[in-house]
Design a protein around this nucleic acid. Structure first.
Lengths: 126, 126
DNA sequence: GTGCTTGCAAAGAGTTTGCACCGTC
DNA sequence: GACGGTGCAAACTCTTTGCAAGCAC
């Protein structure tokens, strides 16, 4: 994979992110760098294919959000989204192990380790 | 809420569904009944506001799916979606109780009982 | 009859694509 | 220099909206 300006910038932003971003948010963050929205989408797709980022679609925002997969601490990262303020936070561990076994036993369905947005109410909105 | 043709038909279809439907799928199912897509969207919104249906957005299909909330058996229904064949099945119970407590303790975030699509691989695709 | 519901067409948001040009390796 | 990445504009998909006509209560 070639090291281009767009890829270097987006990789840095996503790696340092505490939360997930939409394509448009990345566009705004990098407005000064003159990135194009379509290139951002294409870069995110490339990252996704390479297994570097995870894409999820929020039910409430109705658009895709992207976040970097850090090999070290949250390899099974999940997103928590507050249904009131729509703030998203990345969960650093996988709480699903027990759920996974339970579902597998009852339905034959085995859960993936990613691609789950969990909706709820954050501590600031309660 | 007035009993109109669209509402009666969609309620019946959703109540009898074994899986969730997109607005367009409902449109096709009722092609013979001459329902309009925009009316279907409006009806689904109304049902959602009344707490009768749940709307979720699939990360893979990138569109909204809707399913009826049955008070009796699956009041905390969730959807399982196969990442290979994209078939969706409705889970009749909530596997999240333990996860919920765990997350609340660690992040202060309390999960909702609905609006979760869980992605994995169904037994036919394994 | 009143007010909510519908149908149609148009607009809107998010995302993808075609093509010529440009940069990386 | 070759090949893949980019910019721009246009197209595409899903969803929402405005407005006039229709239907339930």
């Amino acid at each position: 994979m070639k090291k281009t300006k767009t890829r270097i910038l987006l990789e840095k932003t996503l790696k340092e992110a505490k939360s997930s971003y939409t394509a448009f948010e990345l566009f705004e963050i990098h407005r000064k760098d003159n990135l194009t929205l379509s290139t951002i989408y294409r870069t995110l797709q490339t990252f996704e294919k390479e297994g570097l980022v995870t894409k999820e679609v929020s039910t409430f925002k109705n658009e895709a959000v992207y976040y970097w997969k850090h090999e070290d601490h949250h390899e099974h990262g999940h997103i928590l989204e507050c249904v009131k303020c729509h703030k998203q936070i990345i969960l650093n561990y996988c709480p699903f192990e027990s759920v996974n076994e339970d579902i597998k036993e009852k339905t034959g369905f085995s859960l993936e380790d990613e691609n789950h947005i969990l909706y709820g109410v954050c501590k600031d909105c309660q």
